[in-house]
Amino acid sequence: MLELRLVQGSILKKVLESIKDLVNDANFDFSSSGLTLQSMDSSHIALVALLLKSEGFEHYRCDRNTSMGMNLGNMSKMLKCAGNDDILTIKGDDVSDTVTFMFTSDLVREIFFYKIADFEMKLMDIDNEHLGIPEAEYHAIVKMPSAEFARICKVLASIGDTGDIGTANIVLRQNTTVDKPEDATVIEMNEPVSMTFALRYMNTFTKATPLSNTVTISLSPDLPVVVKYKIAEMGYVRFYLTPKMEE
């Protein structure tokens, strides 16, 4: 028996929008501690790791560890039927090969009418190997406004990475003299680091911008970059991308 209720159903909608362009199908792993997902893109260059902790749900019941394979495009279509203020309930069981998403509008219930919409989606078998990713010490960790990071990636990608039309340089300096802490740019650097990444992937990661006001980028020369969007009170979406290296 699996039953989860998320008051802010829009969080799962945003999560889906942030990962569906990177990964087509993925296993959602449910345990008593929460919901996790780890999946690589088809080229094994980038990886997404999601954590939504059980404490972040209004109601969370997971009798035994369950893995549900879902097509993220189809799931996104179903979640788009939910209003942004809707409460989302996810239901599953051990015997059927479907998962049910239920959307309820609490605001309407308070008046006199109770709207319930439910969508049943077919599950799929996905052979999904997990990578063991140990915690690492990074040479540099940048915490900055997520919208600014998205803007930088978009601008650089529009100029392109071939050098055909010219070059672009953007320098981002530490800036902590801001009114709101989420507007700060904080650079923790243990050692200088210089790396090259495929902008196409970085741009895909920035689809997670609506999930968090800030983004954390962790860099070490011999490791994939980690781009992390914290989901307040619940967990995170982390993206990993291997660097381009000179051969």
Binding site: I45, L131, G132
Partner: peptide
């Protein structure tokens, strides 16, 4: 010439 290794080159499968 630039190359991009797969993630398995950095992390091992569980």
């Amino acid at each position: 010439y630039e190359t991009q290794l797969r993630l398995e080159a950095f992390y091992s499968f569980n």
